[in-house]
Design a protein around this nucleic acid. Structure first.
Lengths: 196, 196
DNA sequence: GTCTCGATATGATTTCAATCATATTCTGTG
DNA sequence: CACAGAATATGATTGAAATCATATCGAGAC
């Protein structure tokens, strides 16, 4: 249920909540006493400019931990808002820090999780930096970003789903990708997915 | 010279190198024994597909640490290549892990640095996901991405510099930004920068 | 089995940013 | 100071992706 090393924490450090769309889970400048794990639903991290414009800092997907930096900050630096019905876990910040202090393996595991997230983010950034749709989609497939459906892939890599379909179709036609089924593609060099 | 908590490491854990353009600093599947800090120049993290296509996983800028995940992996998972004359530091992996094990404060500081990098990356991702150039530039300014010049900003947010200039100009014209000088802009709500 | 809904797929049109071009302003250097 | 070079700035044109539209396919409900 909880990812990474956080499942090792005592259950007293955890609080599981089901919240409605629109719920503000935490507010900027609130005292930061927890980080979050998004189990299902959607969460936006939002900040507001002086003139009231809303800036979405991050649109989280299920499976992500959120507000990791709150571990090292006294206050949240943005609003945490549910964009739909959302199942989320609060992970007590003091408990995490205490465990990290007393258990080096735990601290290392937290760092490991964080390091992995840095790499994930950088890979996505580099893919978003590719301008041509075909090249972008190809890189995304090569990086294994096509996990569920193509529409999710499209939003992950910042293209319209139509552009993504077209790029996939064109890549398959030119032999740079192999179409293995409706909505399924793989690299030429790569063994066919042997199922499940 | 070294960032974050890494300056606390004994100098025996560090190696400073000046490398030429094209130098392969580390290769995929090499035994991972160091992480890197890019002092000046440029580094690409590169992977290759089965059919030989090159995928740039990440194009690093000076001031970044690289291959943090190598701390927790036996091998590098991509090539590390200098794209120009580059000054870089190797930080011994074993030394970092040892220090993290023996010094909880150090381990926490490493996690803190990592957490900050996660947030930075996510903010940039969210900004890159904004399609309209005006809105993208506005969000970038609101997030304080205009640190040096506008061309750097442009490449940071994945726009041509012309599009960036135009967006800035248009935002200033419509009052959503205040132009405080040649190549300088700020949000309306915000106090003018008091000098330096 | 059939109905519905959403994902996949592709065609037609429009829009907007990339690109190419050119001018101006500033900075640094001899 | 004059000059070179780079950043800033904006105009004109082009091209590629967004958008709008429509069709097919597949999975699940009943």
């Amino acid at each position: 249920m909880l990812p990474g090393p956080f499942h090792l924490l005592p259950s007293s450090a955890l609080a599981r909540r089901l919240v409605d769309r629109g719920t503000v889970v935490a507010r900027r400048d609130d005292r930061a006493d927890a980080i979050f794990f998004l189990e299902a639903g959607g969460i936006d991290l939002v900040r507001y400019t002086g003139s009231g414009d809303e800036i979405v800092i991050h649109r989280a997907l299920p499976g992500e931990t959120l507000c990791e930096a709150a571990l090292f900050s006294s206050f949240y630096h943005c609003d945490v808002v549910a964009t739909e019905i959302t199942q989320l876990n609060s992970i007590n910040k003091a408990a995490v820090l205490e465990q990290m202090r007393s258990d080096p393996d735990f601290a290392l595991a937290v760092s490991e999780r964080f390091a992995g997230q840095i790499q994930d983010g950088r890979r996505r950034l580099e893919i978003l930096a590719i301008r041509e749709a075909r090249a972008r989609v190809f890189a995304a497939i090569a990086e294994g970003f096509l996990r569920s459906d193509i529409k999710s892939l499209a939003s992950l890599i910042g293209l319209s789903h139509e552009a993504t379909y077209r790029a996939l179709s064109s890549l398959a036609k030119s032999g740079r990708l192999i179409k293995t089924g409706r909505g399924q593609y793989r690299l030429p060099g790569q063994a066919a997915d042997s199922g499940k």
